[in-house]
Design a protein around this nucleic acid. Structure first.
Lengths: 115, 115
DNA sequence: CTGTATCCTAGGGGATACTG
DNA sequence: CAGTATCCCCTAGGATACAG
């Protein structure tokens, strides 16, 4: 049988890409890379103090596999690795901007509803 | 500065609001409600055949608690319940549109990279 | 500096059955 | 029709330690 795929994919484009950006960290990582353009592992870690190194590595590898970020390794001592957005990763920025706009509206609505 | 998100996650609006729309279903539900404006429980279930009734209920309750959707109960026989977006829920639509646009670009990029 | 390797746990989310 | 009630599995993701 065709399974899960058929209905959601055709009726909802959102469901299609949901797995790519799902989770606690992917959009945050993309956000920081969109702001700084290029970041090293330790710089990303500093910008997200609450993620563990193990998970940061995992998230970066996943985003790389999905084609959203590029990993450039410089074989030096000490080692240097730079992360940046790919073309398709850069095209995700408007989504973040829309989300950021909504976040501010949402925050304002929450405050208003308390009074 | 006010909008410096580099220090910690709490000052990043994306990270802040991420829990509201996180998970497999919330954005999909909002998408269907944005398309249809008003949907009954069974209609939502039909648009998302893969979600279980238990989880659909849970997701709807959560989105309602977050203020994104409105639940209107008509005490009839048989019972009728209609779900719709609230004002702040409606304001989320631009995010979905941006995401949808990106989804198409992402899909195209994937196909292109295969050749 | 840039990661691995383990371990561990909360909860997201599926399956199935039942109800007012 | 619009849900509850259970059960249960899995993986996201945190903590900690170690390595090249």
């Amino acid at each position: 049988m065709k399974n899960d795929y058929t209905d959601n994919i055709e009726s909802c484009p959102i469901a299609k890409v949901q797995k790519v950006i799902r989770g606690k960290w992917p959009m945050v990582i993309i956000y920081h890379l969109s702001e700084s353009h290029v970041l090293r592992f330790s710089e990303l870690k500093r910008k997200m103090p609450q993620i563990t190194e193990a998970n940061l590595t995992k998230e970066l590898r996943t985003l790389e596999a999905y084609g959203l970020i590029h990993r450039e390794v410089y074989r030096e001592v000490p080692p240097r690795v730079e992360y940046s957005l790919t073309a398709i990763g850069t095209k995700f920025i408007p989504v973040l901007e829309a989300l950021e706009t909504w976040a501010l509206e949402y925050e304002a609505a929450q405050i208003e509803s308390q009074s």
